[in-house]
C-alpha cells in the first residue's frame, strides 16, 4: 500500500550499473511533500537513469528507489497511481491523433481532469486533431506535458520537459509548474535550462558521472561556492596571500579581482589596510555553480549525498 505520509521520493543507496558502466552510484536523496527539486548534470551524468530507476523502468543494481514509500521496481503499478511523468523525448503513435493519445494516457493513468485538459490544450495552443506522425518535436512534447499535468498527480517527474518548446511555450510551461507547486504537487525536475530550475525549484541536486556531488537549496550551494569580489584601490596593492578563504587573486593597474569562500570578514579586514575606492561582491549564478560542479578537473566529493 502506498503511504501518503511517506516522502514522495526517496532514493536509498540506489546504484545502477550498465555492465561496467556506472549509471548511478549509491544515490541517497529524499524529497519532501510539496517540494520542487531540480536535478542538474551534464549529458551522461545519470539524470535520466535516476528518473527511470525511480519509475521502475530500470532495475537498480543495488539499493532502492521509492515513490510514497513504495519500491518503484517491485510495486510499479501501485506506485504509478500517484505519479505523472514527462520524458525528454516523447515518441508518439503515428496513427493516433493528439486527442486520442491524451484520452488514452489519461484513462490509463486512472483518470484526469477534462476541464483542466481543455484549458492546457488552449494554453499550449495545441491542435489535438492531427495524426501523431505530423507533429513537430515541440508539439509532441506538448502532448507529454498536457498528459502529465491533466492528471493532477501528487508527484510530477520530469526529464528535460521543456526541450523542444519555443520561448513562449516555455514561459507557459513554467507558469504551469508554479501552479502545480502552489497546488502542493511535488516536483522532481531534470533540466538543462538553469533559469527554469532557478525560477521554480526549492532545491537542486547536482549529478556527475552517476554520483550526487552536491545538493541543497540554491542559497546553500552559493554559500559553499566562492563569491566574486571586484574592487579598485589607490596606492600599493593589498597583501592577500594569507587571508583565509581568498583565492584566484588578480591585480591589475589598481583593479582587484578575487574569489572568497566562507565569511568575507578576514578579506574586508585585509582590504581595510588599503585605500579602496570601490568594491563589489557578487554571488555565483546557478550557471556558474553548474560549471563549477561540472568541471572535469574538480575533485568529486563522492557519497556526500544525504
Amino acid at each position: 500500500m502506498t503511504r501518503m505520509d511517506a516522502p514522495p521520493v526517496r532514493f536509498v543507496e540506489t546504484t545502477k550499473h550498465y555492465g561496467q558502466v556506472v549509471g548511478l552510484e549509491r544515490l541517497s536523496l529524499e524529497i519532501a511533500d510539496g517540494e520542487t527539486v531540480g536535478l542538474l548534470g551534464p549529458n551522461g551524468a545519470g539524470k535520466t537513469t535516476t528518473l527511470r530507476t525511480l519509475l521502475g523502468l530500470l532495475k537498480p543494481t543495488s539499493g532502492r528507489a521509492e515513490i510514497f514509500g513504495l519500491d518503484g521496481w517491485r510495486h510499479p503499478v501501485a506506485a504509478h497511481r500517484h505519479v505523472a511523468y514527462i520524458p525528454g523525448e516523447f515518441t508518439v503513435w503515428p496513427g493516433l491523433t493528439g486527442g486520442q493519445i491524451l484520452d488514452l494516457l489519461g484513462t490509463v493513468a486512472g483518470g484526469y481532469d477534462p476541464t483542466y485538459r481543455d484549458e492546457l490544450v488552449e494554453r499550449f495552443n495545441f491542435d489535438p486533431s492531427k495524426k501523431g506522425r505530423s507533429y513537430s518535436k515541440g508539439n509532441r512534447q506538448k502532448i507529454a506535458i498536457i498528459a502529465a499535468l491533466m492528471t493532477r498527480a501528487p508527484l510530477l517527474v520530469m526529464d528535460e520537459p521543456s526541450s523542444g518548446l519555443d520561448p513562449l511555450m516555455t514561459v507557459t510551461f513554467q507558469d504551469c509548474l508554479r501552479q502545480a507547486k502552489a497546488a502542493g504537487q511535488t516536483i522532481l525536475l531534470s533540466s538543462h535550462i538553469l533559469s527554469e530550475v532557478e525560477a521554480v525549484c526549492d532545491r537542486v541536486a547536482v549529478l556527475r558521472e552517476g554520483v550526487l556531488v552536491e545538493h541543497g537549496t540554491i542559497a546553500e550551494l552559493r554559500h559553499l561556492q566562492a563569491n566574486t569580489v571586484e574592487a579598485t584601490y589607490l596606492g600599493a596593492p593589498p597583501a592577500l596571500d594569507d587571508v583565509p578563504g581568498v583565492e584566484d587573486v588578480q591585480l591589475r593597474d589598481g583593479h582587484l579581482r578575487l574569489h572568497v569562500t566562507g565569511s568575507p570578514d578576514p578579506l574586508l579586514k585585509a582590504l581595510a589596510r588599503t585605500e579602496v575606492t570601490a568594491i563589489q561582491m557578487r554571488e555565483p549564478s546557478l550557471e556558474e555553480l553548474f560549471h563549477a560542479y561540472y568541471d572535469e578537473s574538480a575533485d568529486v566529493p563522492a557519497g556526500t549525498a544525504g
Binding site: 561556492q225 566562492a226 566574486t228 596593492p237 592577500l240 596571500d241 583565492e247 584566484d248 587573486v249 588578480q250 591585480l251 591589475r252 593597474d253 574569489h259 555565483p284 556558474e288 555553480l289 560549471h291 563549477a292 568541471d295 578537473s297 574538480a298 575533485d299
Partner: peptide
C-alpha cells in the same frame, strides 16, 4: 601587467 597570486581550477566563473 597582471599578477596571478593563486589559482585553483574549481572557481565557478573562470573560463
Amino acid at each position: 601587467m597582471a599578477t596571478t597570486i593563486r589559482r585553483t581550477p574549481t572557481r565557478p566563473d573562470v573560463a
